[in-house]
Every structure is written in C-alpha cells, then in structure tokens.
C-alpha cells in the first residue's frame, strides 16, 4: 500500500482562496498559488481546490488559476466544484489539474462518472460524497438524496471512480474527530482509495482516520496556515503514522 496522504483543501472563488461560513460572506485570504506552494513546501502530499462559486461565469478564473498552479506546483492536485460534463473535466485537466472531483452532477446523472473515467482514466476521477446520518446529500450538502452513502460509493466505484472523497457533514466543523464508523464502512465497501474528510481537530484524529482511510483531507484544522501542516506532520510521525519524507 502507498503511504497515507495528507491533503489540504483550499476553497477558491474568482481565482483567489476564500473563507466563509457555508459559502456565504466570502473573505479573500490569499493567492492559491502562493498558499498551495507553501503547503507543498510544508509537506502536503496533494492539494484539493474546491471552487465554491462553481458558476459558469467563474470558470475562466478557475481555469486560469489551475494553469498557474500547474506551472508552480510539483504535487498532484484535484479540482472540484461545478463539474457537470466531460467537457468541464477535460478542460480542467488540459489546464493542468491531475484529477477532477464530482458530486452533485454525478448524483443527478451517475453515467457522468463512467463518461469521465472513459475519457480521462479512473485515476483522474474523484467522486465526492457529502454524507449526513449516513445518507448522501447533494448541492453542497443542502439537499438530501435519500441514498445510503455506502451504496452510492459502491455504485461510483462500479461506474469508474478512482477515489472516493467522503465528507461527514455531521462531523464537519466540529473538530471532534472524523466519522470513523462511516469512513470504515465506505472503505470496506469499495476497493478504490478513500479520502476521509470532516471533523479533524487534532493529530490523533487524523491518525485515526488514516488507520481506516488512505488519505485525510485537511481544511479548518489548518486555518490557512502552512506551518500548522508541518507541525501536524511532526505530531503524526510521533504517533507512528508512516508519512513520506517530503524533503
């Protein structure tokens, strides 16, 4: 098995890193390329950029941003938010992204997953699942679908997903730890890698997540501070988590 991965997640809008509450009152907190490079230097194994506006008129800024990131960064990066078609996915990869993440559009039209996998390869297709009470939610976690997250993960894999990014809406923002039960259930149901997300408050939480999933997404625990990633890696080393030597 490859080494466990730490993946900082940056919310972007209009080509900038933003911070807000539930995608409202967005505040500019920096340049994605600078912040991404600083995370890379601090030992990020990959990066995720989430376009929180995800509107058609925000696309040119996103593609331009992806290009600038690709010029500078020598680690893999995934872009998600508003990917609705193979054309969306292909344009992101052409611009320099390594993977695209799909969520709502795949729930609405599951064949999108196989179309993307056929065109880009499964290794470039991440299916993101926002789960509340074990059920998949769409539209950034606002609309219930009634589908079990475990079943949806299994279907996503069958349709060609290369990874599952599982966010527990119940745990998200609590800093009380990942939803290990749900993460373990999804990891047992699929044979593709699983990225755990939501709830990290300490190194111990991240270590627990990496015992059941192949990667951990890091958002609010880092507070846009690359230095926090470096110290987190140290703490994880101390807990016996075998991270790569990023030097």
């Amino acid at each position: 098995m490859p080494l466990p991965r730490l993946i900082p997640c940056l919310d972007v809008a209009g080509g900038r890193v933003v911070k807000g509450v539930r995608f409202e009152n967005l505040r500019d907190v920096g340049d994605p390329v600078e912040l991404g490079a600083a995370y890379s230097d601090a030992g990020a194994d990959e990066l995720v950029f989430l376009d929180v506006k995800a509107t058609l008129d925000a696309r040119p800024a996103l593609l331009e941003l992806v290009g600038r990131v690709a010029e500078r960064l020598a680690i893999p990066f995934t872009v998600g938010g508003g990917v609705r078609s193979t054309a969306d996915g292909a344009s992101l990869l052409r611009a320099g992204a390594d993977k695209v993440s799909v969520n709502t559009a795949a729930l609405a039209r599951p064949t999108l997953i196989s179309e993307l996998a056929n065109l880009l390869g499964s290794q470039a297709v991440v299916v993101a699942i926002d789960a509340a009470e074990g059920k998949a939610m769409s539209h950034a976690g606002t609309e219930p679908t009634g589908r079990s997250a475990v079943d949806w993960a299994r279907e996503a894999e069958e349709r060609g997903a290369g990874e599952i990014l599982l966010t527990s809406m119940n745990a998200d923002g609590t800093r009380a730890g990942y939803d290990l039960e749900l993460t373990a259930a999804v990891a047992a149901a699929v044979s593709v890698p699983v990225i755990a997300s939501g709830g990290a408050g300490s190194a111990r939480h991240v270590a627990e997540a990496l015992a059941v999933a192949q990667a951990a997404l890091l958002a609010s625990i880092l507070h846009e501070r690359p230095g926090r990633l470096a110290s987190l890696r140290q703490e994880l080393h101390g807990l016996g988590v075998p991270l790569r030597d990023a030097a």
Partner: peptide, 24 residues
C-alpha cells in the same frame, strides 16, 4: 493486489525515495 487504482506516494528501491504513483 491492494486498492486499485494504486494512488499515492510509495518508496522506490534502490534509492529509497518516495514518488507519486497513480495507476491500474
């Protein structure tokens, strides 16, 4: 063997450096 696609950083020998893999 293992999870496929095999995605992530893994050590390569000789050399002992870790590189990023993504393949089926």
């Amino acid at each position: 063997e293992g999870r496929v696609p095999r995605i992530g950083w893994a050590t390569v020998d000789p050399g002992g450096e870790a590189y990023y893999f993504a393949h089926s």
